[in-house]
Design a protein around this nucleic acid. Sequence first.
DNA 1: GTCGGAATGT
DNA 2: ACATTCCGAC
Length: 147
Amino acid sequence: MSEREDPWPCLSVNKSRFAFPDWAYKPESSPGSRQIQLWHFILELLRKEEYHDVIAWQGDYGEFVIKDPDEVARLWGARKCKPQMNYDKLSRALRYYYNKRILNKTKGKRFTYKFNFNKLVLVNYPFIDMGSAGTKRGHTNHIHLFT
DNA sequence: GTCGGAATGT
DNA sequence: ACATTCCGAC
């Protein structure tokens, strides 16, 4: 938690109120761009109580509902300096996660998606023993499952 | 609302 | 690679 990019470069207010954990940022895997990824951002909003009228866990394990799509889009746009962001564009980015097996859509449930925590937990918490075969004992910081 | 192709940008 | 933008189809 020492030298890190400004989480809210577009905000003149409330700058230092958010302490993003290190794992919410892209590991040094990709040379140049260490920009926040959408699914990291989503997880961070879900972690914060102050957003649970905007986005929250709901339903099955890993399932979450975007209660206020416009607001989530606004926050994401603020984070990425894309003031023209909206839910239509944000949801397209979420849809790209289907093939990467980071997210699924919960069909029939409005604004509801589901994380594939099998993958995510391994990426973010490589030291957690999930009881699955092939999980190495933690001596590396990051396991890159989809690169 | 949701999906996914296509072009474009970083 | 990972979105952003636009948009036709369902």
